[in-house]
Design a protein around this nucleic acid. Structure first.
Length: 423
RNA sequence: GGAGGAUUAGCGAAGUGGCCAUAACGCGGUGGUCUUGAAAACCAUUUGGGGGAAACCCCACGGGGGUUCGAAUCCCUCAUCCUCCGCCA
């Protein structure tokens, strides 16, 4: 959500910045609605002021025993007029909100120009791509052969794009969750949160999943509830409609959750195995930061997510998304991509973004620098730290042995009850 | 799921149709007086949003709707909390 005043006062600059994303937005109807809205407000408030003035004199008139009927008749007319204006106004404001909710965030000045992911910029790289010395087996084949992954049973019980994990596979999922949460809590200073997997419509709107991406979300029939596509929704909205104390910032949360995505239109190649599921687990990092240092906080958050891959010894690179590839709510995003041997390329495993005040405006998350100061919107940030399923896939593929077994990375062995290999 | 009660500022709380929302009263916060300093006492100050060039005006008593000339107050509805009952991991 954008500041109406900002749009009103610099709308050419606003449109130019927005169009860096590749669209072309027509803001003129909005400017017209805004003008009309303010005209109506001036008119209706004058009427309300009169209504208040007259109402104040009523008790005195009654006390004096005067006849109030003519005044009431006149006031009835005024009251009806006010109701008419208020109805027009609320409809207009509804239209304006509906318009604004569809407008994506402005890319930060740090975002490179570009139309699509081919123009994203590689920022840094850790480790060289794994040299197995034999042909890489995709993780879904490894998983099936080791009897730790079973998508056929999932198909029987639920449907496609779901997965059963068994034995060491299920254990590995749990180990990764605990390993990541422990790292972020004990070493990176995040507060662990366990949040609902379902959120109402306004929360989904608060973080920007709605109204534009309705098709991506699973809605509960008969309810205004959605399965969360990421715990970003339930964690960021923890502080919706709140005024935080400036001294508390930055607030840092880490949360494990299942995530649910319809993945509408994402059929086809590169989606097998654990890469693109309707349900997957994720450990999320969320920050509420002071506007002055939110970009430093983004660097730290990204480094915190990278640390997971470093400890697991997985090769990765960090790319800065160009304007055309930037998510709807984001002002700047770093994607972390892990090396996937069977793909012979990097695959996204985390997306770390600064939303500046875009989500904060939608969700009403403010802070006060100090007592007596004006309130301002916080900057919100988040990133995966990391997606569990894709991390498991990356471990299976990068740590596979020629005999089809999988070595467990050292850092995970304590979480696997000392197991060092899945055979 | 059923019955009853509650929701007012940072906290507690008064207010049951107009004279009560810059919201009584108490606590807390901030500034000051006094003091070597502190405490105490005293004085002042302390919600958020919108419109307007400004003066100033409008809105908000858990959310939304209604009745009324006028709603914190009456009605409907939703949410949350408390008590009891039912059910349950």
């Amino acid at each position: 959500m954008h500041d109406i005043k900002k749009i009103r006062n610099n709308f050419e600059e606003f449109v130019a910045n927005l169009n860096k994303r590749g669209g072309s937005i027509n803001i003129a109807p909005f400017i017209e609605m805004d003008k009309k809205r303010r005209d109506i407000i001036v008119e209706v408030e004058a009427l309300k002021s009169k209504q208040n003035q007259v109402s104040k004199t009523v008790p005195a008139l009654k006390k004096e025993g005067k006849d109030t009927a003519p005044i009431f008749a006149e006031m009835k007319e005024l009251s009806d007029q006010i109701k008419g204006f208020d109805a027009t106004l609320s409809q207009l404001e509804g239209e304006m909100e509906a318009f604004l909710l569809q407008v994506p965030n402005i890319p930060s000045c740090l975002v490179p120009e570009g139309a699509d992911e081919t123009q994203n910029q590689e920022v840094r790289k850790h480790l060289e791509p794994t040299q197995l010395g034999f042909e890489a087996t995709p993780h879904w084949d490894l998983g099936k052969n080791l009897d730790i992954m079973d998508n056929e049973t999932a198909g029987k019980v639920t449907g496609s794009r779901f997965m059963y994990l068994k034995g060491a596979g299920a254990r590995l999922e749990r180990a990764l969750i605990n390993f990541m949460l422990d790292l972020h809590v004990a070493e990176h200073g995040y507060t662990e949160v366990y949040a609902p997997f379902i959120a109402h419509e306004r929360s989904m709107q608060g973080t920007g999943q709605l109204p534009k991406f309705k098709d991506e979300a699973f809605k509960l029939e008969g309810w205004d509830y959605y399965l969360i596509p990421t715990s970003e929704v339930t964690v960021t909205n923890m502080h919706r409609e709140e005024i935080l104390e400036g001294a508390c910032l930055p607030i840092k949360y880490t949360a494990f959750s299942a995530c649910f995505r319809s993945e509408a239109g994402a059929a086809g190649r590169d989606n097998r195995g654990l890469i693109r599921q309707h349900q997957f687990n994720k450990v999320e990092l969320v920050k509420f930061a002071h506007p002055n240092n939110s970009y430093d906080e983004l660097e730290k958050l990204t480094a915190n997510a990278e640390e997971v891959l470093k400890r697991l010894g997985l090769p990765y690179r960090v790319v800065k998304l160009c304007a055309g590839d930037l998510g709807f709510s984001s002002a700047l995003t770093y994607d972390i991509e892990v090396w996937m041997p069977s793909y012979n390329r990097y695959v996204e495993i985390s997306s770390c973004s600064n939303f500046e005040d875009f989500q904060a405006r939608r969700a009403g998350i403010k802070f006060r620098e100090a007592a007596g100061e004006k309130t301002q919107f916080v900057h919100t940030l988040n990133g995966s730290g990391l997606a569990i399923g894709r991390t498991m896939a990356a471990i299976m593929e990068n740590y596979q042995n020629e005999d089809g077994s999988i070595t467990i990375p050292k850092a995970l062995q304590p979480y696997m009850g000392g197991m060092d290999k899945i055979i």
